[in-house]
């Protein structure tokens, strides 16, 4: 009986491993053409519109946003990478234009503070949980 239980358990673990392995063996088959509409959208979704300041360039229909979409498309067609497009726009319009604040001297605290608080919380909780009763 006992032996049987064990083998059943083993079987389950085997199934688990097989499932995970089949997944990992999957190749990343995403088609990546040299330039696509999608790439433009990925950029415009992360840019803030200067005319209607709560919206992304992607959502906005303002004159500026429309030109910006064309501009980015032509930049990509000229062989620029996403990062190059972003950095040239940041140079022109300031860090404000991108929704991703990135890591820099100005934003170090922005990223670090929540993580720091998480660690502090973890220490406090660990102290409480693992305290000798």
């Amino acid at each position: 009986m006992r032996m049987f239980m064990k083998s059943k358990k083993l079987l389950k673990i085997k199934i688990l491993i097989i499932l995970i392995l089949t997944f990992l063996s999957f190749k990343n088959t995403a088609v990546s053409s040299s330039f696509s509409e999608e790439q433009t959208v990925n950029i415009t979704k992360n840019l803030r519109c200067l005319i209607c300041q709560g919206q992304t360039i992607h959502e906005s229909n303002s004159d500026f946003a429309e030109s910006m979409k064309k501009y980015i498309k032509s930049e990509l067609e000229n062989g620029k990478t996403n990062d190059e497009v972003f950095s040239s726009l940041i140079e022109k319009y300031g860090q404000w234009i991108v929704y991703d604040p990135g890591i820099s001297r100005n934003t170090l605290l922005l990223w670090a503070l929540p993580l720091l608080l998480f660690l502090i919380g973890g220490v406090i909780i660990a102290k409480k949980i693992f305290r000798k009763i």
Partner: peptide, 20 residues
């Protein structure tokens, strides 16, 4: 609130959006 603090203290403007 970080962008507000950054704007007041260092006069730098940033946007914190979905990627963050």
């Amino acid at each position: 609130i970080y962008p507000i603090f950054l704007d007041v203290i260092l006069d730098e403007q940033i946007s914190v959006g979905p990627p963050f």
